[in-house]
Design a binder for these strands. Sequence first.
DNA 1: GGACTCCTGTCCTAGTGCTCCAAAGCACT
Length: 568
Amino acid sequence: MENQKIAKIFSETSDILEILGDSRFKIRAYRQASQTIETYPYHLRDIYEDDPKKLDDIPGIGKALMGKIIEIFETGDCRKHVDLVRKIKPGVLDILRLRGIGPKKTKLFLDELGIDSVVKLKDAAKRGLLRELPGMGEKSEDDVLLAIESYGRLTARMPMYQALSIAEGIIDYLKVNKKVKKATYAGSLRRRLETIGDIDILACGSPKIIGDFCDMPGVAHVEAKGDTKATVILESGIQVDLRVVPEESFGAALYYFTGSKAHNIATRKIAQKKGMKINEYGVFKGKKSVAGKTEDEIFKKIGLPYIIPEMREDTGEIEFMKKNPRFKPLEESDIQGDLHSHTDWSDGKSSLAEMAEAAQARGYKYLAITDHSQSVKVAHGMEVPRLEKQLLEIDKLNKGFKGFRLLKGCEVDILKDGSLDMPDSILEKLDIVVASVHTYFQLPEKEQTTRIIKAIQNPFVTLLAHPTGKLTGMREAYDVDLLKVMRAAKKAQVAIELNCNPFRLDLDTKHLRAARDMGVMVSLGTDSHSASHLEFIEYGIAMAHRGWLQPENILNCQKCIDFIRKNH
DNA sequence: GGACTCCTGTCCTAGTGCTCCAAAGCACT
């Protein structure tokens, strides 16, 4: 939590410096530091308590920012930030966040009309005061009002699976159009971020596509419309950007449009040093295009191995891939089985046989049946006798399988005191024990952490499921020191789950990276509640890509399922 | 502000499209 606080202080500092017209390099330094800290997998406090000087080792943190981080730990605040906040009212920062309004216009409104809040801005726009300002007109004034009205809707992010479904719908719509030769989605959706701010679509074909796109059903408002790109807002409030490029530039445009911005800048810089230029039309030597049809071609031209979209965040992937050109990201065929599923014995919809059939259809060697334990009444959790009955049923089914088996398991609730919801006498009969939290989300961090660590120290536990309890866009993670939990998990030889259910996607990228660095085994589980949910594994694979995981980091990729039964 | 090179100073992270007002701001990755 303290990392987030520091990131926010630095982010606000950069925003205020921008309005005040300070050095753009200083502004960038604060902004970059904020972003680095926000996604940094380790607690800055741990580093500070170990040796404050080591804060300087974090990329983008130098002597000055290190001093400010130390100041925040020692005094609870940062003098410079406090002074800046005094200079500019917080309402001014709200204006800066409106679409179409940047630091220049924010400063203009403040200096000329004393506007220091969105409410005052709205009032001034309605009274026609803004149009009198230099560089403003009637249209700009209307745009300000529109930006204020749509602010809440346009800043909301949606879960990735929702964006994926909308994007696929748009692509289907475009592809039936004969003017469209190719269409695909790019941006953060292609990089498989857990939440998506807007949808980016790339197409090849006639420029008339732009008009058809803007007339598409479900478009509420056309924000911009030119010869090669358009931006629309859907009725649902989602922004969709379309870019149309010539076919020979498709690879370059896909690369540009996939991002991230930081990754693009980093590779464009590499190209510059080699006397080339990368833009969305290709790689250029002087005016001559030397690559652009495919992404692969672009990487080759600038001397890099292909980097998969999910890794393109400029968080070290370029250096990593240079050093490890043979790095092979996880593939679906590496997955030997699914380690978290439910049936109609608890709150699932499918039978044991249906789940087994679906798992075999995917080519799995095993599927862990992990129905809920007794205390989860709403999910028809199983008491010991019913679980024993299920185990007999699984034995019976397993006799009929060849090269496949159902693993006997249970998703056992972690009780408030860290004990497990099922006695050891039944746990020892299982192939796999999945421990998880479904209650007491509000415990203080220390208590929650201790509770979970106690649970995974039970010798029969195989893995900790959905380790933070977050539900994308609906429920925040509970307070837990996950690094401490992971250290304990490593010691206890317990795996940490990457829950592939698109509502969860728990662990997130930074903790997956940390798990990888720490050598903690990660388990992919779809948490399927029906046979069709087994396909959620694809979301997990994408998340594994974002966490740079390879088959050796993943429990499900181990061919030997005896590993799962570590205590048998 | 950082990073790097040198110790006081220099450079720093790309490249392009759209809009609205008539050059620049803001947007996109």
